[in-house]
Design a protein around this nucleic acid. Structure first.
Lengths: 391, 391
DNA sequence: GTAATTTAGATACAAGCTAAATATATTGCC
DNA sequence: GGCAATATATTTAGCTTGTATCTAAATTAC
């Protein structure tokens, strides 16, 4: 069966989506502007707008509070429409092994509330874990001043492969809880639609939306923290692969001069191996390496040189096979990675024929929640006319 | 500007495309069958079919020559429609460094004619090179019994990166000729639309269409010959990357135990290093390795073991980052690679957590032309209603 | 030869769009 | 203050395409 038969109603749906898209992309829009941007006639534009007004997606501004110096203001005043950005809200979740962060955003993507909740221990039962996630959501919604009933979609990121349908492989003992379990729990509690995704994939969405990869269609985001994962966008679409494991970097074991998973832990290990300081591991010692290097300490500089080369090899291996326009380094190492950028950029041409631009994420800790919000908004925007509003 | 305004004519286009798609997928179709498959009413189906008949895309069969034992044959006889597979033709080109092969196919993809032409030397001028390609096309068309005017689209594969718009990087001194030069020459000579693609990408299209990857949405085809390249399909779409270099395997230089480009040349080199035979290089000696191995020669067996491991590493590196359902080995090594499959399959889990199914291409030398035909047909099918027929 | 069955064709109507004519509200000028 | 110019809004007629329903036609089965 191909797609259902195309009836005249399809036209309205297509055109309404198109008009709503333009309104979403501008502050306020008049009928004439919408005609120009959509190619529709005035009659159709007005009909669509009446429709969208009735459904609650847009609002009409009063005629009187116009004071923009935009145009010569001659002729009959135009009706002015704007997105009703408070018509509904979305939740973006970053579900980590130890902590869950929830962020609430309106339909323009403006973040209105945040909340983080930690798990009591690593081995708590499933119900408690879901409770903690739910609490983070409620608190973020309270901070945003809205209610669970106003949530149109929930984007959620976890540190495991998730396939195109939002399914987690059953072979993932820990994370598979968040597939059926979390989804049905939040559906039952609040009626929410949960869109599960891999955290690195969400990082890529976030980076392309509000990070340093804005508007780049062929983008790779390396999310480096406890784990090292890549979110790959090709032609503006996320890559998943058969089971959602696209972007997993297990192959790095095979790459010369890289070794296994990279990140802070490795950095700390190297630091301690260099004998230059207390091998306490963790973030603190990593920070000291950068401080010492900035102060000119040769041992610290050598560590950073080696680290630059390893990151260059990682990036090159991805770049030569995927050929992205840009690679963004995000996650826990992002803050410190800035110092390594010149070295990495200089080394890249040695390892790949298609060196990409390399940048560091400006989104910090929020990289996954921002992407989760974008993911939820994508869903809402694609299904706007099928969603019921106004609860 | 979003997509143009949706007018009522769009409905007809959508529904006509849908009807044509069903007819393309069946031998003959009655109105009632089309209603069931498209969800349209009889009136609409008939209107669309009259349209398609007038434009020449389908034919109506005579009422009298019906003798299928398909149905109980009661009631008023149905009008029967079939694809007019001779309404136009497509060309598939495999442009190699030494030889160009052209294949002609009808709208069902049945190959009707082939022709290969070799370049006189490696450094002949551009005009002569284009002449040779043109000659291969004309001879293939003559063999198929049709004329250049009936060609609706030309798919062409070259062994270099080609981006999404069919552009070749200027940094490719040899191949960039085939971008603007060949395209405009064939446009001028015959009015043809040339769709340039990377050869490995076309191999992937071909393998998914008529090879061992039929219907697999997440598919990687390794095209191994003079060069080693990969065609990557994710979710049924080809990956290109920013400059079309996605699937290039230069990163293998970084992979332990693989070395640089793989293939027959390497195999021959290894054979000669093993001291088991005349180091003449080339295909002949490669074939002897397999013969000797089949006969139980330990030196030859050792070479094949080592080769299996190297191919397993190559496949694993791709599989762990792209997570395809299946990897197909095609190109010059395909014939002999069958003997290596058990070894490769057994080794894969050692190198990747997501081992794909591995198969060998059944398409042989035709892998690129078959893919080029598929590529051209994709274009024709997507643009059927905008193309003029009947020249 | 008549009934049952299946498909074809015709008619009525609804949704949606365009195009063109008409109406309305504002600015600017005399 | 009144009037022209201007920009927008609204109305009306007509076209395309769809669905739904009814009637006609052609064939098989008994």
């Amino acid at each position: 069966m191909p797609h259902a038969a195309a009836t005249p109603q399809l036209l309205r749906r297509v055109n309404a989506r198109s008009v709503l898209g333009v309104i979403r992309g501008t502050e306020v829009a008049t009928g004439t502007e919408l005609m120009a941007r959509t190619g529709l006639t005035r009659a159709s534009v007005i009909a669509v707008c009446e429709d969208l007004l009735r459904r609650g997606w847009i609002r009409e501004l009063d005629a009187r509070d116009e004071d923009q110096p935009g145009s010569p203001r001659k002729g009959r005043p135009a009706r002015r429409f704007e997105l009703n950005s408070r018509a509904g809200f979305v939740l973006g979740l970053d579900i980590g092994a130890a902590t869950t962060t929830a962020a609430v955003a309106d339909l323009r993507g403006t973040v209105l509330g945040r909340s983080s909740e930690s798990f009591r221990a690593a081995d708590i039962p499933a119900e408690e874990r879901i409770d903690v996630v739910d609490r983070a959501c409620r608190r973020a919604l309270a901070a945003a001043g809205t209610s669970p009933a106003s949530v149109l979609a929930v984007g959620a990121g976890i540190a495991a492969p998730v396939d195109r349908d939002g399914k987690v492989l059953v072979s993932q003992p820990f994370w598979s809880l968040f597939d059926v379990g979390l989804r049905s729990a939040l559906k039952e509690l609040h009626g929410w639609t949960v869109l599960l995704e891999n955290d690195a994939n969400l990082a890529a969405l976030g980076e392309r939306w509000r990070g340093s990869g804005a508007g780049v269609d062929d983008l790779v985001v390396l999310l480096a923290g406890e784990r090292l994962g890549a979110g790959v966008m090709e032609s503006g679409r996320l890559l998943h692969g058969r089971g959602g494991a696209a972007g997993e970097m297990g192959y790095l074991d095979l790459v010369q001069g890289v070794g296994s998973s990279d990140g802070i832990a490795t950095l700390a290990r190297q630091w301690s191996a260099a004998g230059g300081g207390p091998a306490t591991g963790g973030e603190a010692s990593a920070r000291r390496v950068f401080e010492d290097a900035a102060a000119g300490d040769p041992a610290a500089l050598a560590i950073l040189d080696r680290l630059s080369e390893r990151m260059a090899r990682v990036i090159a291996s991805v770049a030569s096979f995927i050929n992205p326009e840009q690679v963004v380094i995000g996650g826990a190492v992002a803050e410190s990675a800035g110092a390594l950028l010149p070295g990495i950029t200089a080394l890249l041409p040695r390892f790949t024929a298609t060196p990409p631009r390399v940048t560091v994420s400006p989104l910090g800790d929020a990289i996954v929640t921002v992407g989760a919000i974008r993911h939820a908004l994508d869903y809402v925007e694609a299904n706007a006319l099928e969603l019921e509003l106004g609860r």
